[in-house]
Design a protein around this nucleic acid. Sequence first.
DNA 1: CATGAATGAGCCTTCATTCAT
DNA 2: GATGAATGAAGGCTCATTCAT
Lengths: 219, 219, 219, 219
Amino acid sequence: MMNEEQWLKELLQLNGEDVKLSEKQIKILEAAIEMFAEKGYAATSTSEIAKKAGVAEGTIFRHYKTKKDLLLAIVTPTLLKSVAPFLAKEFVKEVFESQYESYEDFIRALLKNRYEFVKKYLPAIRVFWQEIAFHVEIKEQLQRIFTAHVYQKFKQIVEYFQKNGELAAIPADSVIRMTIIAIAGFLVARFIVLPDYEWDDEAEMERTVQCLMHGLAKK
Amino acid sequence: MMNEEQWLKELLQLNGEDVKLSEKQIKILEAAIEMFAEKGYAATSTSEIAKKAGVAEGTIFRHYKTKKDLLLAIVTPTLLKSVAPFLAKEFVKEVFESQYESYEDFIRALLKNRYEFVKKYLPAIRVFWQEIAFHVEIKEQLQRIFTAHVYQKFKQIVEYFQKNGELAAIPADSVIRMTIIAIAGFLVARFIVLPDYEWDDEAEMERTVQCLMHGLAKK
Amino acid sequence: MMNEEQWLKELLQLNGEDVKLSEKQIKILEAAIEMFAEKGYAATSTSEIAKKAGVAEGTIFRHYKTKKDLLLAIVTPTLLKSVAPFLAKEFVKEVFESQYESYEDFIRALLKNRYEFVKKYLPAIRVFWQEIAFHVEIKEQLQRIFTAHVYQKFKQIVEYFQKNGELAAIPADSVIRMTIIAIAGFLVARFIVLPDYEWDDEAEMERTVQCLMHGLAKK
Amino acid sequence: MMNEEQWLKELLQLNGEDVKLSEKQIKILEAAIEMFAEKGYAATSTSEIAKKAGVAEGTIFRHYKTKKDLLLAIVTPTLLKSVAPFLAKEFVKEVFESQYESYEDFIRALLKNRYEFVKKYLPAIRVFWQEIAFHVEIKEQLQRIFTAHVYQKFKQIVEYFQKNGELAAIPADSVIRMTIIAIAGFLVARFIVLPDYEWDDEAEMERTVQCLMHGLAKK
DNA sequence: CATGAATGAGCCTTCATTCAT
DNA sequence: GATGAATGAAGGCTCATTCAT
């Protein structure tokens, strides 16, 4: 239980400060995440959530003005954390200056990092991806953040390693697209489509990196 | 309109025989596909569908016993057509004997074929993919068809081209996974995530094929 | 089947003339009687009746303008036949002049006659009694016929046997009430409440007559 | 109003403990009883009940999960109370030991007691008897209670007064049947068939008792 | 703060009835 | 005459939300 609370607080915490969540609030969020992930937002009733959370129906609305607010309280932090590495101020500098000597190292690190992230917060991430198609607010939020933060930085990195000679001279957009597809595709296959298949995670992730790099490398 | 009717009938037609759809039925299906795609099954009311289709609400239930039946009437054929190339009896023989001299030719053909398919039936496909997370029946149907038809044939093809020397000796499962991710990932990016981006489809598809082949080829 | 048709025609036939019923009409009436008896008029849908009768939904409404008309087509003749002995023109004369030498003979004959009647037309009678509480038209019809035909004649008979010295000098209304209750009560017990009990019909009917006569006879 | 509440609470109270009914609940039950009695369960809509009760339709379903639950909440206690005298633990002893010196006294008391009961709870009793034909649950409940409690005790009493010499030596079952028919028949005539007739209740009940006793007494 | 009774709009579905074929 | 597709009102029931306690 301590554990449950913990992952939630970590997920919802956005700027280092501890989030303040009453015990009831935590129960509500947990229940909502679980049910939204399983049945979808529209097919889940607030009374079900209340029952599963062990609180009165009214209590949910004390904390979240509407059912949609409850959804967004889950989705917004998840979305932010999903693209988090790119939100870090120092991120690009780190990539160039020392941390990653090659694009290969970079995507390997990125894949591993996102793998751990999805593993940890899977239910919330399911909610996020399942609902994004139905709620413009979420779609726009993601687009805003992606173009404002992720895309720019990603592009810099790609172009750096193209000049550097590691990557082939294909359009940066294509490189970015293929990189994201390879990483996201692996995670979707691993955690959503075939979570019960017996994965050799280490090997498969390395294969993913290799395949991508051979595909993108300068020949 | 003639056109509209046509694509629907093609989508729903499963074994060569013409499907018989009354005009009202077509209107209902069109309206349902459009609304399910946009708002999701659970958030779409039958009265909205009826209004958009220009029929009485009761008419929907004369043709489809329940709202869920209406969903499945859309999703089942879409699902079947989605994995259709692999359902053709002669398919494997064709691949080996002449049509495709290399795995590269094969995936190029596959990608183009699926690209045309998605382009044509996009709304129905959206419905299918958006709802699969929420309905076990659909998930099980897909799994059954995939393991029974797609997976076996795909494996034969991959192993053939591995013996042949074109593909590297990594596990067939991994090759299949990466192939599917590359193709599906491109289509998702192209039609769902960024349908409004100015795509140079020819170039981008070729790049996808190249990247994948370099990644998978024997070095 | 010949049989089925027969009893229905007999029930519906009111004034000696043969009733003209198309085959479909018979099927509809049979189905309606069966379902109304089992589930009640309000809980039976016309489409169920149509299905059970093997006709199209519209066919019912060609023969009976409304669902209620269908009910009345069943109930009215049943009601009339239920009080039929008293409708016969010559009835009172028969009782006095020869047929029945005593009130005891009269009620014995009445009971046997009504017993055969209920046995033959049970489902239709069930419909009649189950629905009478809910439809004023039926209630009024019964009241009209009862006061106009049954009550008057019954009273004459009772008063005759009171003067005659067979019956005690209690109010005729009370005698009528107790007679009807004894007869109707037996039939309800026999056919509705405990149809599956192993009845010795002869003995039980005789007991009913005896009990009633001892109760009513002059001491 | 105070009065209304009172009779309802008395009817629904089953084991001495006070039933807790919110004001809205009482209004709902009152409205439901009235409408079910008048139009029948199947022909009464929950929205009508709500309107008559002066509550929102949803409120009905907060207290009674389904419309049928509402019916049973009315019918079950009515059914139990209807056969209540026989449910009392001490009942048989009372009959034998002192209270009733003869079968005549016993049925006189029973009739008067049931008369008061029907007079008090008429609408609920109508619902009970009108619906019993259509709902197996109710029929089975009555059968269970009757055979388990009423029949056994009734039989003991009858056989006691037969040995005793008061009652003739006809089968106990027949005595029971005729007794019940006489009592129930009177009540049905009095309250259902001809409630508006000018009844001299005292006289008519005594006549009923006399008639029955003369019919059943040893000669 | 938390509760849970109350609400009434809206949901999916069924119904009796009509009417073109 | 018979059909059965079409209708739209009404049915039972659920829902998100409010508010007095």
